[in-house]
Design a protein around this nucleic acid. Structure first.
Lengths: 140, 140
DNA sequence: ACACAAGGTATACAAATGGAAACTATTACT
DNA sequence: AGTAATAGTTTCCATTTGTATACCTTGTGT
């Protein structure tokens, strides 16, 4: 694994301070973690955004097939939330049968660019997580 | 907002394909999103990792005060999981009263570097999310 | 003898989340 | 009249997650 220098650690701490303003401000009116990330970094949200990053346009049932474990209810809820926060757009075509197309907004694409770095990290290091987890199991 | 070009979209799609291997492989043995990120991108996990990125060493009760809304049970569970996956280390000092110090591992620091880009994005764009959310409420 | 400290665990309960399956609306086709 | 298709919604139920509170352990100070 690439080692992290003391210098990098200091830079990270500075970024965190800048991000949170005053690190321990309580009753913060709107917390980027609690209020933004908790929705956008949810497992289902990540999968939806990644699939819409790969397939530019997807309809409800296609999306559900790609994310092969999600129920109608949960997919529909997540799509509404992601639309509400502006990550995705929903286009309704009043045909018969009805047709609805989902796609990423520019805002969603902007998020995806950053999100992808994290999921790439996870993909790259998943082996480490697997073996850490196994070691920890044994040690208990 | 900075616009995303078609070129960037194509690059992103390629990254996703590379990351997932074959995008629609089912029964994937270990999914980076479902199995790694779902733990590490959880709201509480993010807060724990960020606070340990800012304060290099924290004890249980200090950490709980910084994250001002978390119960003993949840904090203790999350710490165990994050330790199990290798993001944080737990050092026990057999003093009286007992002392336990939590800190990030190198692996945790590596994750934090990527995570931070996402949380910075969230902090930068939280205003957009607020107004998107308000508009969506009105429209329904 | 008793309280206190730290770092939790245990217990009881409430609330949120998730899944399965049935159901809805619309219109065309058989 | 019955069926089919799409995009969900609704209902019921089980599981998961979270909260609050009490409790535990160990040795020291009062």
């Amino acid at each position: 694994m690439e080692t992290i220098t003391e210098n990098q650690k200091i830079k990270v701490a500075k970024k965190i301070k800048k991000m949170f303003g005053h690190v321990d401000r309580r009753n913060i009116e709107f917390c980027p973690i609690r209020d933004v990330m908790s929705l956008a970094s949810d497992k289902w949200s990540i999968l939806i955004i990644l699939y819409l990053g790969y397939y530019p346009v997807l309809r409800f049932n296609k999306l559900r097939k790609h994310i092969y474990d999600i129920s109608n209810k949960v997919l529909s809820e997540r799509l509404k939330m992601l639309e509400g926060d502006g990550y995705i757009s929903r286009k309704l075509f009043a045909e018969v049968p009805i047709r609805v197309e989902y796609s990423l907004t520019d805002f969603g694409h902007s998020y995806l660019q950053k999100l992808l770095e994290l999921t790439e990290w996870a993909e790259k290091h998943k082996g480490t997580v697997i073996s850490n987890r196994a070691d920890y199991q044994k040690s208990t």
